[in-house]
């Protein structure tokens, strides 16, 4: 078996040009990409239906959002839709095709290049305010602000997911997970308590997550008995986050969208990475969304699978 057919940018033309050609040549009826925002950094996901709409098309350093999940809805509409997929987004796309959440015959996946996307929140966290313009100058960013020129290193303000890009040899994505594993249970509890108690339960992490595509989430379903819109105490959010993490286990491609969108900057990806790391250790290396057909570690049974007592062997709660 092999993955669904892809458009690849063989001639190395600009992404905007590619988008134009696809609509011009009628290879798709619509195209999902990014639309220029109010400022230079707030591009929004958008569907383009004709060439004149493409005037607002943009592909630059602020196209971090992953478009795959929009296809759950878009691929159910009439006609064919082309979708632009950065390397990391392709994993989510594959996984959604595998789970039959995207009707793949209605989609033309288009692979585009990416050098790493910037995170405006990280720039702001450096204390840089009133941002007007950013120019890339090698490894440095020249930032023009209402309060005069500023600079910062590009590496310091890349989106979290870009730091360990699947497409490139990057850092160890489990580094922080290992640090948290090495903590005592009290320290670990404290770490997560201070992070998770910031949660405002806005649901951005769930709604953006390509692995969260249930028609009706248990947390929204009155009849589930556990619909919870509010936290009874500041740590109750852990329930929501743990259930969500377990539900996406083995299917989370580590796309980093949850962490990107969290208004409270909670490092949600660390919960999922812990599970990915465990799955790798228990069942062998596995990358969800690597292809759009194979079975995942939790949906397959092998005789030499680990037994539940692995928990004891690993020492459990330190």
């Amino acid at each position: 078996m092999q993955n669904a057919d892809r458009e690849i940018n063989k001639e190395k033309i600009s992404v905007a040009e590619m988008a134009k050609q696809i609509l011009e040549q009628g290879r798709a009826d619509r195209l999902m990409g990014w639309k220029r925002g109010e400022f230079f950094y707030d591009n929004s996901p958008a569907v383009f239906e004709n060439l004149s709409e493409l005037d607002d098309f943009v592909y630059d350093l602020f196209c971090g959002s992953n478009l795959s999940k929009f296809l759950v809805k878009e691929s159910r509409k009439d006609g064919k839709i082309a979708v632009l997929l950065k390397p990391c987004d392709r994993y989510s796309f594959n996984q959604l095709v595998k789970e039959h959440r995207i009707i793949k015959d209605n989609v033309l996946p288009v692979e585009i290049d990416c050098d790493g996307m910037l995170d405006i929140d990280k720039i702001r966290a450096l204390g840089i305010k009133g941002i007007k313009k950013i120019t890339v100058d090698g490894d440095q960013l020249q930032i023009d602000t209402v309060y005069g020129p500023k600079t910062c290193a590009r590496e310091d303000v890349l989106l979290m997911k870009c730091l360990t890009c699947k497409d490139r040899v990057g850092g160890d994505r489990f580094e922080l997970v290992k640090e948290i594993e090495a903590m005592s249970s009290v320290e670990r509890y404290e770490f997560w308590r201070s992070e998770l108690s910031k949660c405002i339960r806005c649901n951005a992490c769930r709604n953006v997550c390509p692995a969260c595509t249930c028609e009706k989430c248990v947390f929204d379903n009155d009849k589930s008995g556990i619909a919870n819109k509010a936290n009874t105490d500041s740590f109750e959010e852990s329930l929501y986050h743990m259930i969500r993490a377990f539900h996406v286990a083995g299917r989370c491609t580590d796309c980093g969208e949850c962490t990107r969108v969290c208004p409270q900057n909670i490092p949600l990806h660390l919960i999922n990475r812990k599970i990915i790391k465990d799955l790798n250790e228990f069942y062998g290396e596995y990358q969800a969304g690597e292809d759009d057909f194979s079975k995942g570690p939790l949906t397959r049974f092998d005789l030499d699978d680990v037994e539940p007592d692995i928990v004891m062997e690993r020492g459990g709660n330190k």
Partner: peptide, 13 residues
């Protein structure tokens, strides 16, 4: 509304 994922972040902040 096409870009909106219905998360409610805007209302909560």
């Amino acid at each position: 509304s096409e870009a909106c994922i219905g998360c409610g972040t805007c209302t909560f902040v």
